[in-house]
Design a binder for these strands. Sequence first.
DNA 1: TCGATATTTCCAATATTATCGAAATATTAA
DNA 2: TTAATATTTCGATAATATTGGAAATATCGA
Lengths: 109, 109
Amino acid sequence: MPKNIRKLKGLDVNEAVNALGALAQASRLAVFKLLITKGKTGLAAGLIVDYLQQPKATISFHLKELSNAGLIISRREGRSIIYCVNYEKMQQLMNYLLENCCSDNGGKC
Amino acid sequence: MPKNIRKLKGLDVNEAVNALGALAQASRLAVFKLLITKGKTGLAAGLIVDYLQQPKATISFHLKELSNAGLIISRREGRSIIYCVNYEKMQQLMNYLLENCCSDNGGKC
DNA sequence: TCGATATTTCCAATATTATCGAAATATTAA
DNA sequence: TTAATATTTCGATAATATTGGAAATATCGA
């Protein structure tokens, strides 16, 4: 089955809560929004520290949270760890939030 | 200016964090998803308690959180308070999360 | 006005999360 | 193999959030 037409797997409630919780914090949302601008190219952890001007331990903690939630993905390139947004997960999250929209209500949204 | 073509006002970072935080909790996400199915008709607080089988103080606390975040709206009807999703806010939140997507990256998402 | 119904507020116990310096780990280049 | 660079883990502290019983508030119908 070609990747680009495979059906999006839905999230379960825990995955959705974890993803939302990961985004529900100012520092992490800043990391996420920075990475959103970078597309699949991503950004090294150290550069994220430079952009956001927070201690590396703090950024590392937040990167791990976003990673655990599945919202970002990392790869090593030499000494650096490059992070980028998991756009598929993001899509799944949005689908989760709006699924069954108005299903009990004849489409009145 | 007609309502249905007015430009969506963007959220600021605090509004986005508050909205995400409101959704990032299993009981509240359950409330929100229940309301999503009900459209503009909404659901009375007491019925939400019946659906979700949690104490009324707990549900009331979560309804207030969702309300404060702007994600749901309430109106009184007789003795009941009816809650329903603020779909416009939801749209704004999704726009916020994905705005400037790949802007630094030649569109590679 | 009074009793019944609907919802919220108060409060205190419990649990979870954020912060960041210092130390540890991993990779590379010389 | 050693020094330099990149990132994570540890650990202690501080701040914030969740829960639900009991009491308070608001509305309605008789």
